[in-house]
Design a binder for these strands. Sequence first.
RNA 1: GCGAGGGUGGCGGAAUUGGCAGACGCACUAGACUUAGGAUCUAGCGGUUUUACCGUGGGGGUUCAAGUCCCCCCUCUCGCACCA
Length: 828
Amino acid sequence: MEAEYNPHVIEKKWQERWLAEKTFATGRGGEKYYLLEMFPYPSGKIHMGHVRNYSIGDVVARYQRMLGRDVLHPMGWDAFGMPAENAAIAHGVHPAAWTHGNIDEMRVQLQRMGFSYDWDRELATCDSSYYRWEQLFFLQMLEKGLVYKKKSQVNWCAACQTVLANEQVENGCCWRCGEETESKDLEQWFFRITAYAEELLAGCEALKGKWPERVITMQKNWIGRSVGAEIEFSVVDRDFKIKVFTTRQDTLYGATFMSLAPDHPRARELAAGTGREAAVEAFIDKMRRQERSDRDLAQQEKEGVFTGSYCRNPVTGRKMPIYLANFVLSGYGTGAVMAVPAHDQRDFEFARMYDLPIIVVIQPEGCELVAAELTEAYTGDGVLVNSDRFDGVANRQALDLIAAYLEERGIGRKAVTYRLRDWGVSRQRYWGAPIPIVYCDRCGTVPVPEKDLPVTLPEDVILDGSGGSPLARTEAFVNTVCPRCGAPARRETDTMDTFVESSWYYMRYACANYDKGPLDRAAVDKWLPVDHYIGGIEHAILHLLYSRFFTRVLRDLGYIDFSEPFTRLLTQGMVIKDGAKMSKSKGNVVDPNALIERYGADTARMFSLFASPPELDLEWNDQGVEGAYRFLNRLWRMVFALLPALEKVEPFAGGMAEVPDKYAGLRRKTHQTIARVRSDIEERMHFNTAISAVMELVNELKNHDVESAAKDPVLAALLREAVETVILLLAPIVPHFCEELWSAFGYREGLSYVPVPEYDPDSLVEDTVLVVVQINGKVRERLTVPRDLEEEKVRELAFASHRVQKHTAGKTPRKVIVIPNKLVNIVV
RNA sequence: GCGAGGGUGGCGGAAUUGGCAGACGCACUAGACUUAGGAUCUAGCGGUUUUACCGUGGGGGUUCAAGUCCCCCCUCUCGCACCA
């Protein structure tokens, strides 16, 4: 062992050994444990978020190995996506070359961090050996009706020249580039995720306690299930009906008008021949032009236009004017809303603005609402009035009764609506997995036969940023023959959303090199689902929801037999510096490579784990890093100093009975530390407190020197036990450092598979305990007493204390509470 | 507006079941060693008017005892946001 801690030398040494010996390959026996961190986009450089995410994951992986598990811990690349194309446009590099170059750089950086991956399972989603199976899934989903194409209004990002799924639009802006999105009519491919809405929602229940509550809540809200009724309203003098969805069918008798989305398909028809055509047309046009920019303003003001047509309230027969209204969404429910101004705030505001009638149909307990005097809608509970046969019924009960009544009469029924929309997967970009479809003038839309997969992304395309899909301009790709009739045909030029790749990569890791199909059933059955998944909270909806959907699809396609991909989920917080998320524009970025250069990987790992618990944001602090580095140096020097005495003895292996009294404290601290660290890592995943506990033990060791140890073999044995404990407990956190110290003690085998130390329960028990004496809840005295001393004796000792007497002088205790081994509280 | 999660020294954070608030680390202060110190070691380190009192965003409550439980309020972060 060297006298100086030299991280660069030892880190290189151990990393090379781990790679050469394939230390982290699976198959060493033990119960399976699949630990996965979200794979990175190969930007070319790892950032602090990666360091943190992968350090957390690596601790768990290494710890599980030391618990005797057979750990699958793979790494790969989410390699399709826009930046590769942008780089091509900006620098003339081909996206494939750019991506593979970045992967090579990032792999080296990850290896320099000492993460314990099984590199033999590495995959990149841009390789046809990966995306070919995705194309197969697409075809099989098409067959099952889970893929379809439709013309729809889509979110279009002009900057990225592509469409975005609903989930990918944040506050009207592109989730990737931050530019405002607009809506556009395009033919798009969709995955029918709504077919699984109910199951995805129900599945949330099973995740409780294993996933963070807020992720579950976000998913539930996103799916957005509403229970209510569909009701049909016949239109006066027209031969069609308008269907609405409502959750408040109990207020049906108070519906006085109807509101439709401005882009409702019947809008123009309703205006035709009423003299309102021009006004309606103007309104539709205004709404269409009113893009997201001034949407916030528009949100405040209710606005609409009368179509000139009427419908009839199906239960009262009332003639209800039909309006178009700016607040009705075409994408939700039926795009039509029955307006009950007395009991819905939006309808109320609209009614006041356009002077429409208001009828109270629910009276709250204790006061009487009068329509003309309302200043806002009453949305609470109450008893029905003005509701014919339902008068006097509590509105909660009326929900069911009215739904049943409508159903009897054939004008409505109970219904469930979801906020979740189908997942649009078409992207007009080059660097993605081609959608395996051919368009033939004679046969129409024809799926590429499975035997012709993969549809390979052509290499020679022109990427000049001129807009539109580069694939569409690549004649050699587009022109093909129809697989059905052999006539000349054209290929689909859209590629798939890159979230499709990340929806199933975690399964492919189980059999990354399998080439007879997407998934090797035996391997997937063995390893999946992922036992513990770790990644950023920013994927709480998108990636995790898509993955949960995809897992169910693959289950129904017969590939797997589980439904939830990730048993446990840990979402780690962001890395912050100077109060803001690290970003180039803020200039507060810390480069992990510079950090490794200066302190080594172990220091970087240790600080990112020590500074805060994983789920909280981590405030980066250069001086804190320095502190971690100093700790490692201090520990190194201490071990180096003690080694000559410790290597002469075996670690202490006896029981507490053989430990001399003067060393009982040391022994106890060692085993208390084991107990604490084990529960911190195994149960709470709080590595910061685990590290603190080890630091305390190290501080305790400072009280002993090599001279005393050389003279007293029992002390030496106890110190060796303590030092080995420190090494083993820190091994998952600072692995290179610990390997080096471990080998200094003469162990030939690396410590990746050395069992986590067990604590001796006897060692945790102290013979004497500190009992706090309070007077009226304030601490006045601390007594050291034998453990489990009888209550009466403890009480006597407390009262015997002169400090206690001072505070109780002249007063009679009214009450004395004694908590064994802990506290006495005297109330005077 | 709705939902979720936070608010504890100068800073990051501990306090696992209601039982000594501030573990561990950073910063800071003093001392030692030293030609030197941004190295290392030792000691101190919530506040104040220091035999004591105050103190976990603010106010109230329950309790012998509250950072922890209950009610009200303030504030910050995140998500959703006219979802009928």
